[in-house]
Design a protein around this nucleic acid. Structure first.
Lengths: 337, 337
DNA sequence: CTGAAAGCGCTAACAT
DNA sequence: ATGTTAGCGCTTTCAG
């Protein structure tokens, strides 16, 4: 190795880059100097091979273009960086097959992976977690370490809020079938609606995309419901757009609530939504993962953490029937197709 | 290695995973079988060390939460995946110091990096490109391979469009100072405005964030300009929101144009903007990078490619003075602070 | 078609 | 405080 041009052994050079404090300051200085001049940089793979560690963790998300995920990814990167780890990111495009494939690839290249909003079957997740350090975010699988955002509770608050405003009918615009969050949210909405005497219906299976929300509007109007709760803010915003296009007053004629409080998405009117601290959840997941990576303890037991949510009331929800007298739109009845 | 439990040598196992066709099908089958059972997976770092290649490229972007980048990142991942490479992603948070640091880290862990919208000084970029395969997107530095999106030309079209609508005054809401795109766009707006006899002013230095756009509104109104061109759609959407809040009619009283055609961002009214194919640009960048990685040719010469843009006219721009008679807002004069 | 042996660049005992 | 010596797990001539 060229760095011995500074008259020391490879071990010394190695130490300069790993345990500088165990060396005479003068040598450190000299070697650093020479290395700098020669543009020498420790070879990462060699280091990883020798150390038996990659210094890298992976993050797998369903859709990097969904504004819910960037803050999560950022938080993962930030927390991993603090621990001296880099982050490998991959996007599954909401496709379970691709997710499994990428998970395998990631597993080979990292010391552990944070799997966010996995769409994989429970058994598969459990099986993968057995082979490799793995922590879940937004997915509740027994025997696998996970950190959950309790949007179910937020949904119950949302239903209460709507009930308090006098609403008796509501539709839940569902998200991806394979999403655990969607299951939680739907169940919470349905149960709490029953409890509060609200008639709730579900419009199933939407990709969390603006267009999907927009396209759900005819059905929403056809249902005649006075309120809609969407799986997330992206869908909610699409619903809002579709409603506005048809001249339906929000919140006068129908109230809309979203989920996740994606502030990057500004709406008119500002959306009532459910806020959970996804960044904290992500950071916690990384901490749990690094713990498992750095202190592998066979019988450490898995952890299940839950971060709370709160309902943020803005201007997209109002008293039921408020807009009735406006009578300026019967769009729902006109444009059902 | 455990895989010799199948009665062959390590070389054979290695070949099973690299050049299966050079082996007797029966051995391949047997070894694959055993490997599967034992859950054996080739050790990535060892492979990389031996091969002298990582099988990974890096992407560095200023802000993963800015909707302009996810499609770019996706395109990079997709194209890299086709070439059998994984993708390492990092986010610089618009901070040059962090960018340089991350670039070094990435360089160690990858075979090459795609540097998107770099905020680094030209000299630094050139210097880094000398050490490591590097291709730029949205940044024009001599002697470094790059693919550019020609938004300058789009901006000229936008100015023409506005001029044709009778506008005589305009303000350009600038993006990050260190952004090459911003430089190009500002220059194009200024030059074309001069050419068309439009009086153009610049509101400098904004982060491409909704809030920053919103906050620029008082100054925009104070300028009395009838049109605003924003650095990008994120800022434009912020401007729109700020304008709406103050009851300023768009496009009646002021026309607004954005840039990038970030369709995830729906606005009311739909935004006139400049569309460029960022995904294609990103994919090209990866192709160029992989070419350099796979066929390192010292005197290959750098490449400079430009992808074109088009002006997409929607509903946020209209004839100058259209809304004058509405007289329902003098918000600009009232709310200057 | 397959085995044996050397080496990729680094780190970690083990000397000294 | 530093040099020596083995590997880390894989790929690859070179033999057979």
């Amino acid at each position: 190795m060229v760095a011995e041009a500074s008259g020391v052994s490879t071990s010394t050079v190695s130490r300069v880059f790993s345990h500088p404090h165990r060396l005479k300051p003068s040598t450190v200085a000299r070697v650093t100097q020479v290395a700098e001049e020669l543009g020498y940089v420790p070879h990462h793979s060699a280091r990883a091979l020798s150390l038996g560690r990659m210094g890298t963790i992976g993050v797998l998300v369903p859709d990097i273009a969904n504004p819910f995920f960037p803050p999560v990814i950022r938080a993962v990167q930030a927390r991993a960086g603090q621990g001296g780890f880099s982050t490998l990111l991959a996007d599954t495009d909401e496709d379970p097959a691709r997710e499994l494939e990428l998970l395998s690839t990631l597993a080979q290249r990292t010391d552990g992976v944070v799997l966010v909003s996995s769409r994989l079957p429970e058994e598969t997740v459990r099986e993968r977690a057995g082979r490799h350090p793995l922590v879940l975010v937004n997915r509740d699988v027994d025997d696998v370490t996970r950190v959950l955002i309790d949007t179910g509770s937020g949904m119950r608050d949302a239903v209460d809020h709507l009930a308090d405003l006098g609403h008796r009918t509501l539709v839940y615009v569902a998200g991806p079938e394979a999403s655990w969050s969607n299951g939680e949210r739907r169940r919470a909405v349905l149960e709490q609606s029953a409890r509060r005497g609200i008639e709730a219906t579900v419009l199933p299976s939407h990709r969390p995309e603006h267009e999907d929300g927009r396209r759900a509007v005819p059905e929403i109007l056809a249902s005649g419901a006075g309120a809609v709760i969407a799986f997330d803010d992206v869908l909610a915003q699409g619903v809002l757009a579709g409603l506005v296009e048809r001249g339906v007053d929000v919140p006068g004629r129908v109230s809309v609530v979203g989920c996740d409080d994606i502030h990057a998405v500004r709406t008119v009117p500002p959306l009532t939504t459910i806020r959970g601290d996804s960044a904290t959840a992500a950071a916690r997941a990384v901490e749990l993962l690094l713990e498992a990576v750095e202190h592998p303890d066979p019988d450490a037991g898995v952890v299940r953490e839950v971060v709370p949510t709160t309902l943020v009331v803005r201007s997209s929800t109002a008293r039921s029937g408020l807009g009735a007298e406006q009578g300026d739109n019967r769009a729902g009845d006109l444009d059902l197709r």
